[in-house]
Measured scan of single mutants.
Amino acid sequence: MAEQVALSRTQVCGILREELFQGDAFHQSDTHIFIIMGASGDLAKKKIYPTIWWLFRDGLLPENTFIVGYARSRLTVADIRKQSEPFFKATPEEKLKLEDFFARNSYVAGQYDDAASYQRLNSHMNALHLGSQANRLFYLALPPTVYEAVTKNIHESCMSQIGWNRIIVEKPFGRDLQSSDRLSNHISSLFREDQIYRIDHYLGKEMVQNLMVLRFANRIFGPIWNRDNIACVILTFKEPFGTEGRGGYFDEFGIIRDVMQNHLLQMLCLVAMEKPASTNSDDVRDEKVKVLKCISEVQANNVVLGQYVGNPDGEGEATKGYLDDPTVPRGSTTATFAAVVLYVENERWDGVPFILRCGKALNERKAEVRLQFHDVAGDIFHQQCKRNELVIRVQPNEAVYTKMMTKKPGMFFNPEESELDLTYGNRYKNVKLPDAYERLILDVFCGSQMHFVRSDELREAWRIFTPLLHQIELEKPKPIPYIYGSRGPTEADELMKRVGFQYEGTYKWVNP
């Protein structure tokens, strides 16, 4: 592979701008107003304001973009700056750019259920340069409990009458099928589907988006991507930290609602779906819905739930269990780990287990898709061969690698495990991989909904998990304890083995 010439960040961002501006969906010269509902909250200060700053800094926003914060707290732009700027990672050389960014910011205080507050917000936006005809993007960085009041008031008082209007809704989209349907029906009564952007930030990850290209742009994968060759698929999300004093919020939802029903299920769809007619948003989402419709409700015998306990040999936070978090209700049975087996009941995947695993306070930070292939028929190497695996590593250190057998150097035919490896950090030294939120917010500006969740996708996802969630809430089974920093409950490994996964433990990928 030829040595790549190092590029400056300015040059890299210039390439990104060229890609972005050559499309006809990006209205570079139009006025846009980006409204952050819930501007005083954690999500706004840690993710949304920093993301908008990065896009502005790199010249990736339309030229005439204004940012308006809205929340109940009586704040000023200076207050917003004070709480969000520490997350910007701005350099001293960017000081003038930073001043320009905050000059485009404003803030309006108001209630979430008060019509007069929204009329005041609308008047404020109209007073901005060309504000009355601007395109408006409303980001709901809010708890779902206020979605209905907020969307109703936005629709009645704050819509642009000339430009387009788009609304970005953060997960969780309800707690179960019934609450999700209620919320979807409410929002759909106010906005068209092409105006609604239900954001799952995992769909903005580079390697998640790469799944489609790997599958449908490489001839070698087509013939082997089926039940005849693939023994099982494992989708993993692991965090090495616990709730760390923020367990009160987590306890309301648990690990299945927080990660599995959305992030992991979306990745499953991209692995299992048929080739779409095109890369058009609805063509892709149509195929994802077909996959979900082929999955039956989760069966309790295919589920393992766990909850982390303190590690007596650990240090600091590792010595504390979930129930030691003062914000967690006493005696909570909320799971911090889950392993679930699903089956896609169609011709391509009949009988292939899709194993979804996620948890907190585990032994490493990792998100990946792992396809394990069947054993080689007619073994001539005296059971020395391990199964081939194709691994798409989402985070950290984005990579695609194939675990395969090669001859060990020497005189004899002794096979050993090795890999074919594409590590993004080595291959793409001159490429700026956008943060997931950067990519998705740019998608909203461009009107691309491919990486957002459609209402029928959402409904099918909740259909699969709601009976299990209701059973857990009714019966309150005690989750299996696992030690902070471990791989999780051993019962999860036993479940995976029972459905056909072979864990060798003899080879570990190392970032080159």
Rank of each mutant, 00 (worst) to 15 (best):
Y249K: 15
T145M: 13
R182P: 06
F241S: 14
F216M: 04
W164M: 04
R246F: 14
R257T: 14
L61D: 00
Y70E: 00
R215A: 01
K45L: 15
Q119D: 13
I256N: 01
T243I: 14
D251E: 08
I80F: 11
R198A: 04
G222E: 11
I167L: 12
P50T: 03
L96H: 11
S180Y: 07
Y202T: 13
E18D: 14
G174S: 06
L177A: 06
Q22H: 03
G222H: 08
P62N: 05
L140D: 00
P144G: 14
P50Y: 00
D42K: 13
L98P: 00
V12T: 14
D24A: 11
T243M: 14
L98T: 03
L60N: 04
G245N: 10
Y118L: 11
I162T: 13
A71E: 03
N229G: 09
I168C: 05
D228Q: 09
K82T: 08
K205Y: 15
F101G: 00
E94Y: 03
G59D: 04
D194K: 10
H129W: 07
Y197L: 01
S157T: 05
K97F: 03
I230D: 02
Q133F: 05
R182C: 02
E63I: 10
F253W: 13
L203D: 15
K152R: 14
M207G: 10
N165Q: 04
I36M: 03
D194W: 04
G38L: 00
N135Q: 03
Q133A: 08
F253Y: 08
D176I: 05
F66W: 13
L55G: 05
R57S: 03
R166W: 00
I35P: 01
Y197V: 00
G247L: 08
C158V: 08
E252A: 09
I33W: 04
R57I: 02
Y107G: 02
Q178L: 09
W54H: 08
Q119F: 10
F87R: 03
G163H: 02
G247A: 12
P86Y: 05
L137D: 01
H129N: 13
K95P: 02
A141K: 00
V233K: 02
Q133D: 11
G242R: 03
E18S: 10
T236R: 02
L61C: 04
Y112P: 08
R175F: 06
F253H: 15
L43W: 14
L7V: 05
A116C: 05
F221N: 07
D113W: 08
V146S: 07
Y202I: 14
E244V: 09
G110L: 00
S189G: 12
L177H: 07
L211I: 04
K45W: 11
K82M: 08
A6Y: 10
I67L: 04
L203K: 10
G23Q: 13
L16D: 09
H32M: 15
E85M: 08
F221G: 03
R136G: 00
G204D: 15
E156N: 07
T76R: 10
D42E: 14
I67R: 00
T31G: 06
K82S: 14
N135R: 03
I168N: 00
F241I: 13
K82Q: 10
N165T: 11
R227W: 03
Y112A: 04
F34P: 01
M212A: 03
L43E: 08
I167V: 09
M125L: 15
G14R: 12
S40N: 04
R9S: 08
G222L: 08
N64V: 02
I48K: 00
F88V: 03
Q161P: 13
I224A: 15
D58A: 03
G59N: 09
W225V: 03
T76L: 04
Q195A: 04
L60S: 04
S8P: 03
E170I: 03
S8W: 04
T51L: 03
V213Y: 04
L75F: 07
I199L: 08
N153C: 06
I234V: 09
I196N: 00
I162D: 10
F26H: 08
H129P: 11
I154Y: 00
L16G: 03
K46H: 13
Q83C: 13
F173W: 11
M125Y: 00
R198K: 01
L43Y: 13
G14C: 08
R215K: 08
H124A: 10
V5L: 10
R166V: 01
S188Q: 14
N122Y: 08
L214R: 02
T91S: 10
A109S: 10
N229T: 12
A2K: 15
A78R: 06
V169G: 01
G110A: 03
Q111N: 11
I168Y: 00
G110S: 02
K47P: 00
N64M: 08
I199T: 03
V150Y: 00
R227F: 04
F138W: 04
V213S: 08
A115L: 10
G163M: 02
V233R: 01
I52Y: 07
Y139W: 06
P143E: 12
R198S: 03
P50C: 02
T51I: 07
S180F: 03
E63K: 12
M125F: 07
Q22N: 10
A44S: 04
E93I: 05
S179C: 04
D251L: 00
K171A: 11
R72E: 08
N218W: 00
A39S: 02
Q83R: 14
K89T: 09
L128G: 02
H124F: 07
L121F: 05
R175T: 07
S189H: 14
S40V: 07
E170D: 09
E3I: 01
E85P: 00
Q22I: 12
A71K: 00
Y139D: 02
S184I: 09
E244F: 04
D24G: 15
G174E: 08
T51E: 13
G247I: 12
G242I: 03
H201G: 12
D100N: 10
W164N: 04
T151A: 08
E193R: 01
R182S: 03
D114R: 09
K95R: 04
T31M: 09
R104F: 04
Q195G: 04
G110F: 01
F221H: 04
I187V: 03
Q161F: 08
R246L: 13
E63F: 09
Q83T: 10
I15G: 06
P62F: 03
W54I: 04
P240I: 11
N126P: 01
L7G: 08
S179E: 11
K171L: 06
E148Q: 05
I196Q: 02
M37K: 00
G222S: 12
R72F: 04
I196R: 00
L190T: 09
H201S: 10
V169A: 07
K152A: 13
F253M: 14
N64I: 02
I35V: 08
N105Q: 06
N126A: 10
S188A: 11
I187F: 11
D194G: 05
A217R: 03
P143F: 05
L7W: 04
F191P: 00
N229H: 13
L140P: 00
L140R: 00
T65W: 13
E193Y: 02
N229I: 02
F101Y: 03
V77G: 03
K46M: 07
Y197N: 01
D251W: 01
E99M: 05
S180P: 07
S179I: 04
S73G: 08
R104A: 04
A115Y: 09
N210L: 02
R74D: 10
Q209Y: 11
N226M: 03
F250S: 05
F66E: 07
P223T: 14
N229A: 08
A231H: 10
R72V: 07
S160I: 02
M37S: 00
G248D: 14
G254N: 07
E99Q: 11
S123L: 11
K89I: 07
M212Y: 09
N229S: 11
M125T: 08
I154P: 02
L214I: 12
G247W: 14
I52L: 13
S40E: 06
C13E: 06
G247K: 13
C158E: 00
V108D: 01
C232G: 11
S73P: 08
